[in-house]
Design a protein around this nucleic acid. Sequence first.
DNA 1: AGATAGACATAT
DNA 2: TATGTCTATCTA
Length: 746
Amino acid sequence: MKPPMPDTRPADSPSLFPSHVRVVDVLLPVAVGSAYSYRVPEGIEVAVGDIVVVPLGTRHMLGCVWPRTEDPRESPKPVDPARLKPIQRKYDVAPLRPAMIAFIRWIADYTVTPPGMVLRLALRHDESAGIARERTGVRLTERRPERRTSARERVIAALLDGFVRSKSDAAREAGVSPSVVDGLVDDGVLETVVLPPEPAAEAPDPDHSRPELLPAQAEAATRLVAAVKARAFQPFLIDGVTGSGKTETYFEAVAEAIRQGRQTLILMPEIALTQAFLDRFARRFGVRPAEWHSAVSTKRRGRVFKGVASGEVRVVAGARSALFLPFADLGLILVDEEHDNAYKQEDGVHYHARDMAVVRARLEAATVALVSATPSIETEVNARRGRYTRLALPERFAGTKVPRLEPIDLRREGPPRGQWIAPRLAQEMERTIEAGGQALLFLNRRGYAPLTLCRACGHRIKCPSCSSWLVEHRFRRRLECHQCGYATPVPTECPNCHEPNSLIPCGPGVERLHEEAAKLMPEARLQVLSSDLAGGVERLRAELKAIEDGEVDIIIGTQLVAKGHNFPGLALVGVIDADVGLGHGDPRAAERTFQLLHQVAGRAGRHEMEGRAFLQTYMPEHPVMQALVAGDRDAFYDREIGVREEAHLPPFARFAALIVSGTDPHAAQAHARALAACSPFTGEVRVLGPAEAPLALVRGRHRYRLLARSARLFDLSAYVRAWMAGAPRATGNLRVEIDIDPQSFL
DNA sequence: AGATAGACATAT
DNA sequence: TATGTCTATCTA
């Protein structure tokens, strides 16, 4: 830190040098529209981007010295100089660079969120966390103890090499408790040494172990490497079938960024950030990347945050929040599984991390690559229009093909009532297991049965707080609401007509499927995999290991099995109900179903083994099923893009919804209607049902949704801002949130 | 965001 | 009339 400026004014004539009140604007991480002005006290020098501690009301908080703009919304109103409060101190962290400030502004503008809320995402770390505490190590001296015990001897033996170790390491290596080490320090046998702080992440080695690449991979890698070398914004789509080595390919670009001394951000859906991925990275680069997601400890976050800001951390693998890390020199961003919905932030600042990654890359003059086997419609359109350069990886590594999905028409060859596995699928499973392969039954429904019905009066048991069906979880003997988490013991009589023993479970969940499969194949070893597996992450990890080791014949899984995990012995996939998820009126239902089922099918058959996949459906003629069966991805995209065009929704702008919420339902609805009445909104106003939006009635807040049907969504944020500015004062308690997937940033 | 002052509702 | 609960407003 710079020394304070010496005061050069003559002591006897201060009035000759009118002391200028130095004022700067500081953006605070709170939901206020503009930055606030603060006085800079003598002895403190601040520049734009600096992080400072300032008083606000009764508290002190971090803020960022913010540049002035012409934009009146962001500029502070002039304040009586006497009312200005002084900056308390500078905060010891790297200042936000201009690209980061531009990024924050861009997102705030696009998402119609106060910039302070976006800044909050960038400053989210614990103040004390980043300060690496001093670590002490121990080293052997010439002295030997008077009292000799076997524990002491072991410590001395372990430290005979003369190297310094931390106390805990020394104790662990010698197999003794730390108090033995302390005792030796007291006796002067060991001396303590101050250790340098542990690095936030070790430096990855771009040449640690370079893999053999297939021709298509090598070609794609070359183009990515060239882009990284060029140090200019360039967006790519890495479009490769499951098992085509997308990761190995983009690792080459990571290697180049490391060689260039620039940083890399690998974004992944949180669930995909597994040990397996980190290990894979370590095999290629010798060390693991720095991790950034909700499960990382506060202390570790602080260190990573500082390491990223200083440039010491070269590669970060993180969930969407990693997008707001203060990279010193970001050269490459990878968005793995770019189609994944987890990239959407649904509360606070509504942003789509995939799109914001492209924005950030542009502002940082970095290369960005979106990676997927089933790109989102938007990304596909951007690739087709040439805004993203497509790098196609059409072949699988081992030369096997992604299996075609074979349809099983449930109307013609379905199972008997009360069962869900078609005879043909059962046969194929038996054959597969006899041949030593594994089978996966995919059903995206947790629990035993999605509906409990009264045989006597027809009553369907619903959640008292959000009116969606309660799902029976037989293992836990409860009825659970999958929307809001409400749970109650399974009743013995109908809550409506009080008829005893009249309740019957309707429809299948994975637990019920497990029951059926066990009956069909009593010898087979079964395992259910779902996110609510008893025993949590530990158990899940253990079960995945067991599956990998071939200790399971039939896996019965929900969505969980479609993502990330590798099942090397999997030879057959059976989709129990391909129609789940279609026809809910969700405009993205077709896309999601296609992506999910394509990914699930892709799990079958790798490592020189051809796999097979079956699709049980009541509507084999549905375009999604047809595309899946034909293995024709392009046909699917052609159709989906066409559908959106017909609805006058530019495919790359996706759907837009405005959520107007307020505490007074009448006022909120009136405002929603007023907004809807104005161009460009022609959509209807709907009260959000709880099933549609579990958060709809949080704390008595009423929400209304507008669907915008406009070809010019580009103006959406400006439009809403203008509307809000002109809205009557009573709208102060109304929040307008835009829920869109912005695509107009190129 | 978080503190606080005001607006109702309810206990004392 | 004190006390609790919920909301709207303000922070420089």
